[in-house]
Amino acid sequence: MILQTENLNYVYSEKTPFEKTAVKNVNIGIGENDFIGLIGHTGSGKSTLVQHLNGLLKPTSGKIYFEGKNIFDKDYDLNALRFKVGLVFQYPEYQLFDETVEKDIAFGPRNMGLSEEEISQRVEEAAHIVGLKPELLSKSPFDLSGGEKRRAAIAGVIAMRPRVLILDEPTAGLDPVGRNRILEMLKNYRQEHNTTVILVSHSMEDVAQVADKALVMNKGEVFMYDTVEKVFSHGEELEKIGLNVPYVTKIFAKLRANGVYVPTDVFTLDKAEKVLLKLLKREGKE
């Protein structure tokens, strides 16, 4: 386990009329090299939870362990932790500020106190990972397109080479092409760099496409935490809390109900295509 929480609770505006429990008794363990999809409705506590994992928010009660060490111990270096647990906020393009894309991506590594040589090497690498063309690096971040800005901001966190990369709704507001690009990028990044990735999303399709495990939150509590396959097999329960399994999965469930023999682990269109083609071939033979 690289990250662990123990009876984590977080209450906003405690002891005022605005008091609201955002995270309630969360006990989770995140393994090395996991790809976790964190799903839940708006206001289910997803964003609040992930801000605890790099120590930006201090829990009202409970503990968080990174590599077995309590991050809120007195002598724990929280600043160093933030380089190891990289957090990309929602709409990260609104945090871009520097003159050039290159300088903006270098902000994190520079705060780490690395040498100029190392910094430029990491900027180059991060830009390559997110698919930013080298000629964009010398431009002002405000001249980029929406999707490019988003990728530049993500590169700013990747350049710190975090052990755990957390992204809060990285596909929000992007068109299908931009969305796909980011998801595929994450998939490759995790495989090539052997890192842990946590993807916060309310889209089941996103999680189905890239994650191995799904952590479902409802009203601040952990509703389900298991492999994507197992979580999606509880379609009815998910619907009760207002979440949907991917449309393809629903269609395949109906096919099964009608006596067509299809597997239960179909969550993406690609997989559905393969399964159906195989099925058609077999039918043709018979």
């Binding site: 790099n54 930006l56 933030r82 945090q95 902000f107 994190g108 700013g156 966190v157 710190m160």
Partner: peptide
């Protein structure tokens, strides 16, 4: 607060 948190997440002190 959000921008401050985002920059802190990149190690701003």
């Amino acid at each position: 607060n959000k921008i401050m948190s985002a920059q802190k997440a990149r190690g701003a002190n």
